[in-house]
C-alpha cells in the first residue's frame, strides 16, 4: 500500500517540484501536462530504438526541455500571455507526439516497452524522494532559490540590484522541463508502455499541489502524497464496495478539493485570531 502510494506519487512530485520553481518566479506554468506527455513518449521510443534506458531518459529530458524553452521564448522574450503559450505548448506536445508516433511507430496508439524500463521505476521514486531535501535546500539556502522567489515577488528589487529576472524565469522553466521529462519517463516506466493521453491531467494535479502546498517544497511534497493516497484509496475501495471505476476517478479530485477547503478555512480562522 505505502509502496503503491509512493510509486503513484513519483510523477506528481517530480512535476510539481519542477513547476514550483516556475511558480516562485511568478509564471503560471500550465505546460507541465505537455512536458510530461512528450517526456513519456520519447522515453519509450528512444529506449526501444537504442535498447538503452539511460538514452531513453536523456531523450525524454531533452524533448521536454526543448518544449519548455519554446514556451519560455514566447512568454518572456515576446511577452505572450503565459496561459495561452502554455496551452500552445500542450497542443504542440500533443501534436508532435501524434505525428512522430505515426512516422516512427506504424499504427500509432499504444507503444509497448521492449526494454526492462519497468524495472527502473524504483530509481524514479528514490530520485523523487531525494528531490525534496534538494529543492528545499536550493529554494531556502542558495542565492538561486532566493532570486527565483524575488523574481516572483518584486521584479523592481531585482532591477535595482542589477539582476535580470529573465535569467531566473528561463532557467526555472528549464528546470520544470527537465523534471517533467523525468516525470514522463517515470510514468512510462511504471506502466511499461506509452499510451496516448498518458499524462491524463497529471500536470494539472501537479499545479494544484503547488498551490495546495503554499509554494513550500515540503508541503507541495505532502500534497502530492495526499493526492496519490486518494488515488490508491479509490482503487482499493473499488475492489471492496464495487463502485464503478469511472466514478472512482472523480474521488481524488473531490478529496483534494475538500482538503484545500479545510486548509483555507483553518488558515482564515487562525488569521482572524
Amino acid at each position: 500500500m505505502i509502496e503503491d502510494i509512493f510509486k503513484t506519487a513519483t510523477p506528481y512530485i517530480l512535476a510539481s517540484i519542477g513547476g514550483l520553481f516556475t511558480e516562485l518566479c511568478g509564471s503560471l506554468n500550465i505546460a507541465l501536462e505537455g512536458q510530461i506527455l512528450i517526456g513519456a513518449f520519447w522515453a519509450i521510443v528512444v529506449s526501444n530504438m537504442t535498447g538503452s534506458i539511460v538514452l531513453g531518459l536523456l531523450a525524454a529530458v531533452a524533448a521536454s526541455s526543448l518544449l519548455a524553452l519554446i514556451t519560455a521564448l514566447f512568454s518572456f522574450r515576446f511577452r505572450a500571455n503565459i496561459f495561452i503559450s502554455g496551452l500552445a505548448a500542450n497542443l504542440l506536445a500533443y501534436g508532435l507526439v501524434t505525428v512522430f508516433s505515426t512516422i516512427l511507430v506504424k499504427g500509432g496508439g499504444v507503444i509497448r516497452a521492449e526494454t526492462a524500463i519497468q524495472g527502473s521505476s524504483y530509481f524514479f521514486t528514490v530520485f523523487a524522494l531525494l528531490l525534496l531535501p534538494l529543492s528545499w535546500y536550493v529554494i531556502n539556502y542558495t542565492p538561486y532559490g532566493m532570486r527565483c522567489r524575488v523574481a516572483g515577488l518584486s521584479e523592481a528589487v531585482l532591477y535595482y540590484r542589477g539582476i535580470s529576472p529573465d535569467f531566473y524565469r528561463y532557467t526555472a522553466l528549464l528546470i520544470s522541463g527537465v523534471l517533467c521529462g523525468i516525470a514522463g519517463a517515470s510514468l512510462a516506466a511504471r506502466i511499461g508502455a506509452f499510451v496516448p493521453n498518458i499524462s491524463s491531467g497529471r500536470g494539472w494535479i501537479a499545479l494544484v499541489a503547488i498551490y495546495l502546498g503554499y509554494r513550500k517544497p515540503q508541503w507541495v511534497f505532502l500534497s502530492c502524497i495526499l493526492f496519490a493516497s486518494a488515488e490508491s484509496l479509490a482503487n482499493w475501495t473499488q475492489g471492496f464496495i464495487g463502485m464503478p471505476a469511472t466514478v472512482i476517478l472523480a474521488l481524488p479530485y473531490l478529496i483534494t478539493l475538500s482538503v484545500l477547503t479545510i486548509v483555507s478555512a483553518v488558515r482564515k480562522k487562525t488569521e482572524q485570531r
Binding site: 519554446i70 511577452r79 505572450a80 497542443l91 504542440l92 501534436g95 505525428v99
Partner: peptide, 17 residues
C-alpha cells in the same frame, strides 16, 4: 496529425508582443 501543431503555433504568436 499536423493540425494541433499548426494551432499551437497560432496560439504561441497570437498574444506575443
Amino acid at each position: 496529425e499536423l493540425s494541433p501543431i499548426l494551432q499551437a503555433f497560432v496560439f504561441f504568436f497570437i498574444t506575443a508582443k
